[in-house]
Simulated scan of single mutants.
Amino acid sequence: MITLVLGGDVNVQGRKTPSTAFERLEPLLKGAGLRFVNLEGPLDAVMAEALTSGGIDVVSCANDLTAPATLPVLDRAGIAHCGAGPTLDAAHTPAVLERSGEKVAFLAYTSLRPYGAHLEFPGVAQAFATTAYQPDPRVAEIPGRPPLVRTTPLPEHLDRLVADVKQAKAAHDHVVVSMHWGLPGAELTEYQVAYGRAAIDAGADLVAGHGPHTIQAVEVHRGRPILYSLGNLVFDWPAMRGRHVDGLLAGCMFGDEPRLELIPVRRNADNECVPLAGDEAGKVLRYVADLSARRSTTVTIRDGIASVGVGA
C-alpha cells in the first residue's frame, strides 16, 4: 500500500529561513510514502531548501512560466516534476516514482494562463477551454439577468490528456493527474468537471486540482476522487498575504482498500501554514462536506479529519 499526501498551491520567496517553510506541517508529511504539491512561481537553489526540508518528492510545474529556469533547480535538488519541459513531449511525460514495489505516474496540466501572458515556453502541458455566454432563459421577462457561462475543453487538449492517462496507466500501477484550473470561490466551471471526469474515465486513480486559491468540492466519480481545489498551502506572494488563507492536505492510500482523508490547514498571522484543530477545523470541513454533497459525494467528519468514501 502506498500513502500519498497532496497539497495545493505553493509559492516560496523571500524567506529568511526557507528550510522551515513546511515545519509546522511536518507531522502530517513525514509519514507519507510520497508528497506532492503544485509549484506556483519561480524557485532558486536557496528557496528549494523549503521543498527538500519538507520532504516534497514531486511537484507540478505546468502553470509556471518560469519553468525553463526552475526545472534545473528542481533536478539538482532531486525533486521530480511534471507538466513542463524543454519540449511539448517532455511536458506530457509523467514523473514516475516507485514505492513499495509499485510505480506512481504523475501528470500535470494547466487551464490558466498566469497574468494573461502568452505561453511561449514550448513545453507546457495545456488543458484549455473555450468560453461562451448563453442568455438566461428568463431574460425576456426579466431584462438584465446575467448570462449563463458555458465552458468546454479544447478537443485537442482533451484528447491529448486522455491519451496521456491511458498510456501512463498501461505502464504503471497508479496515475495521479494534477490540474491547474477554475475560478476563486465555491462554484465549479463546466470544463473542470469535463476534464476531471475524463481523466478518471481514462484510468486516473486521483485528480488533484488547484489554481482558484480557494477550497472547492470533492467528487467521487466511478469510485475515484476528483479534488477540485485544495486551495493554498505554503504561499508567500505578498499580494496573497492575509487572503485565501485556508487549504487542505489530502492523504490518499492506494491499494486493496483505498482511502482518502482531508485535513484543513491555514496560513496564520505570520503567514506560516499550520494544521487546524477543534472548531476551526470543523468549520472548514463542514464547508467541504456541503460543497461535496452538491456533487453527490459524502464527506464524513471526525476529530478534525474528513473521510471520503472511495473505491468499489
Rank of each mutant, 00 (worst) to 15 (best):
F235I: 03
L227Q: 07
T214E: 01
M240G: 05
E219V: 14
L249H: 05
V245L: 02
A217G: 10
C252Y: 13
G255W: 11
G203H: 06
M253Q: 15
R224A: 14
G242D: 06
G223A: 12
A208P: 04
P258Y: 03
T214W: 00
L227H: 04
G231F: 02
F235A: 00
G209V: 02
N232L: 03
G242V: 01
G209E: 03
G209K: 06
E257G: 09
G203I: 11
H213K: 11
T214A: 01
S229P: 04
L227C: 07
G223S: 07
V245Q: 00
P212I: 10
M253I: 11
L248Y: 03
A250C: 01
A250P: 00
G255A: 11
G203W: 08
V245A: 06
L249I: 01
V207W: 04
I226F: 10
L233M: 07
L233T: 12
R241H: 13
A202N: 03
H221W: 15
L227D: 10
G203D: 03
F235L: 00
G247E: 02
H221D: 11
S229N: 01
P258K: 11
V207K: 09
G251Y: 14
V234T: 10
G231H: 04
W237L: 15
P258N: 06
H213T: 09
D246K: 06
R224S: 13
M240V: 05
A239K: 14
F235E: 03
G255C: 13
L227A: 12
H213E: 10
D205E: 12
V220N: 15
M240Y: 07
M253T: 15
L227K: 08
G247A: 03
G251V: 09
L206S: 09
D236W: 04
Q216E: 11
Q216N: 10
R243N: 14
F254N: 03
A217H: 07
F254L: 14
L227P: 09
P238F: 08
L230A: 06
H210G: 04
L249M: 01
A217P: 08
Q216R: 08
V234D: 05
L249S: 03
V218I: 15
G247R: 03
E219L: 10
E257F: 08
P258L: 02
Y228D: 01
R241K: 15
A204N: 10
L206T: 08
R241W: 09
G203M: 05
E219C: 05
F254Y: 13
L230C: 01
V234L: 07
L206P: 01
F235C: 02
L249R: 03
H244L: 01
G231I: 01
A202H: 03
I215N: 12
C252E: 01
V218R: 14
H213V: 13
D256C: 12
A239Y: 06
A204M: 14
A202R: 01
L206Y: 00
N232W: 01
W237C: 13
D236Y: 08
T214Q: 00
I215H: 10
I226S: 13
G255Y: 06
G242Y: 00
V207Y: 05
V218Q: 08
V218G: 14
I215F: 13
A217N: 12
V234M: 10
P225Y: 08
A239N: 07
L227Y: 02
G211Q: 12
D205P: 05
R222I: 04
V234S: 06
H210T: 14
D236R: 05
R241L: 09
R241Q: 11
E257N: 14
G242Q: 06
V207T: 02
M240R: 09
L230S: 00
G203R: 09
D256P: 12
Y228F: 06
